[in-house]
């Protein structure tokens, strides 16, 4: 009997892994296509889309598309710009949005209802629809920097960062998560005389690993994939991000191999970011035993 239960267990494992793998196949095939295509010369790449060869690194395989892509555009510059803008925005966003979320869930203040309603309402405003008024505005905003007071934010990093630090979704994400945290911990800390900042920084944030990871990933994706806004506000190559760089590859006769190489290159940092966060994410699961 114990023998058959071991068999049964094994069978279930096989079924599970098969299911997991089949689903995995569904999610990964376009990306395999992208990676494999980046190694092929254009004529072969296009001919191969008609068969399973599209997913196999066969035929005339080389890295020459990558060489040519680097010649066509300053790829490292674009990646540096995107990563810089993204990193600064993510860090500031996590801080300010979690603070706001904390305030909405744990603190009582006049105007809170209204403020929260406004934040929820902003979720309905797609960025595309306010881009022009925003452009008119940022082109006249003041800034106090090393050079003293200047007017107009065009062609800077800050114009790509500051408008996107706070958003309704991230704040909402934090409020939904904070609501599930045990209130007793906070009330106990307050009774012991902790300030609200201490409660936020020492108790609530350390418990918020999963939501921080989720919010960070979301923000990272949004920022790394910025496109419309940088086109409007960066007239100098020096500040352009990766998706504007993608435009360099769509010429009259598009070199698809180079496009695929570029896509592969710009996808790597995001994937790496997720894999790193996933580990943090898993680690934080272990610490959630306190909740309930």
């Amino acid at each position: 009997m114990s023998h058959s239960s071991v068999d049964h267990h094994r069978l279930r494992l096989v079924v599970r892994y098969t299911l997991l793998s089949l689903i995995a196949l569904m999610f990964i095939f376009p990306l395999v296509f992208m990676l494999v295509s980046s190694l092929k010369p254009d004529h072969q790449l296009l001919a191969d889309t008609a068969s399973l060869r599209a997913f196999l690194p066969v035929g005339d395989i080389s890295l020459s598309n990558y060489d040519k892509a680097f010649e066509r555009a300053p790829i490292f510059l674009f990646m540096f710009n995107s990563l810089l803008v993204t990193a600064v925005t993510v860090v500031l966003s996590l801080l300010l949005c979690s603070m706001a979320g904390f305030s909405f869930v744990y603190l009582n203040w006049r105007g809170k209802q209204l403020a929260f309603s406004i934040i929820l309402a902003t979720l309905i405003v797609p960025f595309e629809t306010i881009a022009i008024p925003m452009l008119l505005m940022v082109s006249k905003l003041p800034w106090l920097g090393l050079e003293g007071l200047t007017w107009g934010w065009l062609n800077t990093y800050r114009v790509q960062i500051v408008p996107f630090i706070a958003d309704g979704l991230t704040i909402f994400l934090f409020t939904q998560y904070f609501k599930d945290l045990p209130r007793e911990l906070i009330e106990a800390a307050r009774v012991e005389g902790s300030s609200w900042w201490q409660v936020y920084w020492r108790i609530v944030m350390p418990l918020s690993g999963p939501v921080i990871a989720t919010a960070a990933i979301l923000k990272f994706l949004v920022m790394y994939n910025q496109y419309l806004w940088p086109i409007m506000v960066t007239q100098q190559e020096q500040y352009r991000p990766v998706l504007v760089g993608l435009q360099y590859f769509f010429q009259l006769n598009t070199a698809w191999g180079e496009v695929m190489a570029y896509l592969t290159l710009i996808t790597m940092p995001v994937l790496a970011f997720y894999l790193v966060l996933q580990r943090a994410f898993i680690a934080s699961i272990a610490s959630t035993g306190v909740k309930g």
Partner: peptide, 23 residues
């Protein structure tokens, strides 16, 4: 010289003009 990708060139110019930032 400042070069722009052709696909989005017109959008860039119009945005720059709106912002009073033409070359």
């Amino acid at each position: 010289l400042q070069s722009f990708p052709q696909e989005s060139y017109n959008d860039s110019v119009i945005a720059a003009a709106l912002a009073g930032n033409l070359p």
